[in-house]
Design a protein around this nucleic acid. Structure first.
Lengths: 120, 120
DNA sequence: GCTACACTTCGGTAGATGGCGAAGTGAGTT
DNA sequence: AACTCACTTCGCCATCTACCGAAGTGTAGC
């Protein structure tokens, strides 16, 4: 029950859902998600922690960078199913589409440049 | 997106999930859910309103009684899928099982008696 | 070692949420 | 009409949550 509730809670907040949807096309660096969501680094970080604790995403650390991606390790069947349903339900969502468009630009920018950007 | 978030939010609270699960075996009067959940009538009422607005359940009024049941009218495919997943995920849940046991007793009691019970 | 940098954790604030009892609503009863 | 009763809505309070900036952590480079 608690695991199920944690999954639902993780997916009941708009910016977390946007972050999850953004990972469909591959892992993203935290600074890329900061740029996408337009939130403070600390806020994005805690959102990702919630998604991670729910088992929806996993982290990969590489030097000073941290990349998040969809958890494809051994995860509860329920979490996997809920995640799939979310993708299905929001496939045509306008916000998700716009994020996908912006992401294709964001992915082309060097990470260093992105980080300088939100420091201003 | 907003509809999806409303569905997730509705299912991210323990007592609401318990209420939804309780309706799997047929409609229940509000007073039966008050007895099951052990909450104040006003609290149960607002939980049911949230479930109803999310499209997960519907209401049937009969005189002074109000019965809630799973919404089997025309409802968004997403809501239906999420609800099915919830049932599947929680089929073996201990809390849900205990509620089901208690419910079989509660269903046998006359509604009048139940209402007198929580008025004390 | 020291600095710079990316990210996380902490502390605090404004707004949302779950809880209850009191008051309101509407149907049945006398 | 007046009353009763089941339920809902309202008003309030305690707790939780999303947000930010500041401080902390760990890595890379000088």
């Amino acid at each position: 029950m608690d695991e199920f509730l944690a999954t639902m809670k993780a997916l009941s907040e708009k910016n977390r859902v946007r972050a999850l949807m953004a990972l469909r096309n591959g892992e993203l660096c935290v600074c890329q998600m900061i740029e996408l969501l337009g939130l403070a680094p600390s806020t994005v970080s805690s959102h990702m922690t919630i998604l991670r604790r729910a088992g929806l995403v996993e982290i990969r650390r590489d030097g000073k960078w941290a990349y998040y991606r969809l958890n494809d390790g051994p995860l509860a069947a329920c979490v996997l199913k809920v995640r799939e349903i979310a993708f299905e339900c929001l496939a045509a969502d306008e916000q998700a589409r716009e994020d996908a468009r912006r992401l294709s630009s964001v992915r082309e920018m060097p990470l260093e440049e992105l980080c300088r950007h939100y420091k201003n």
